[in-house]
Write a protein that binds this DNA or RNA. Sequence first.
DNA 1: TAAAATTATTTCAGACCTAAAATAATTTCA
DNA 2: TGAAATTATTTTAGGTCTGAAATAATTTTA
Lengths: 175, 175
Amino acid sequence: METPSPSLVLDRETKASERPGDHKDELRLWLRLLTCSTLIETEIRNRLREEFKTTLPRFDLMAQLEKSTTGMTVGEVSQRLMVSNGNVTAVVAGLLADGLVDKRAAAQDRRVQVLTLTAQGRKAFKAMAERHEGWIAELFAGLDPTETTQLFRLLGRTKTSLHAAIAQRANGDKA
Amino acid sequence: METPSPSLVLDRETKASERPGDHKDELRLWLRLLTCSTLIETEIRNRLREEFKTTLPRFDLMAQLEKSTTGMTVGEVSQRLMVSNGNVTAVVAGLLADGLVDKRAAAQDRRVQVLTLTAQGRKAFKAMAERHEGWIAELFAGLDPTETTQLFRLLGRTKTSLHAAIAQRANGDKA
DNA sequence: TAAAATTATTTCAGACCTAAAATAATTTCA
DNA sequence: TGAAATTATTTTAGGTCTGAAATAATTTTA
């Protein structure tokens, strides 16, 4: 390998603030974040299909219901999972057909549909969740505890930044 | 806020290695990573639709083609974007219909379909890419350069860990 | 109270995505 | 050479996901 020329080194060390209008660093950061996310998602999807003949959206929906003792409405689930109401309706339809979820209109407000896991659903979820937790641990096994903590913290900062930017944009549209 | 009890502090500082079988930290890390990824993806999707009446898969596909002067095959694109061949075929069908992409069998190997941007496609992409880069910068604006660099590095480490775990699993299946 | 506005969910049309099977072209090798 | 294996892409069937329109129930308000 050649020694890099001074200009190349300089270029690599140039800060974004010194290159007005250039945001290639952020772009690379986003692409790397997306790659990690996609790799994990694809792998979990494959393993859920192979070992449990189920899908990630179904698992995610069951995971939400499992956390709530009193059940959740369609709207609550769709907010938590960051998917549309229509999508929740469709995924729930499959889970209902398989007897894993129960759906009933709330007594007080009959617009609202309350979703709960059936006994069978809880049992099925328990088995999957245990395996799932192990898979995630395997996937992150190459990071030491310090790195895991650091990454968690930085992603927290990222989340804050994203919420701020998205809220600002939403306000701007209103004005 | 109450002062946390000693046991709570101890618990919070307990390392995963000291809690055999527990991998809640990695699970939380994955959920946070997924949240960030989903927030960005949804926001970019919305902005592409509002400002350019296009979709993220189309943009991503065009971005790949734009990087290559000689064109790319369906297989190359599907590998880069980490989607199935069939999906590339479908998204390309839309871009072909809109005159943004050109598809032709390679002269040497007629199994291979070579995809290139048309002049119109290059022009349309250029406009979108400029805006896109700005959006990403906005979304990450809450991180300072040190944090951006740190996060990029840690996601690199994560990618390595993921590839290792996925490869190991693939080998295990073979044996 | 009755019309209007709001809220929760479902339906719809359409794009996306996958795995697996089918098709088509090329390469290997007996 | 020509059958078999390999490689590249498309097709198919089915699940996922969206935004927008439709439906249905509740709350507001005139």
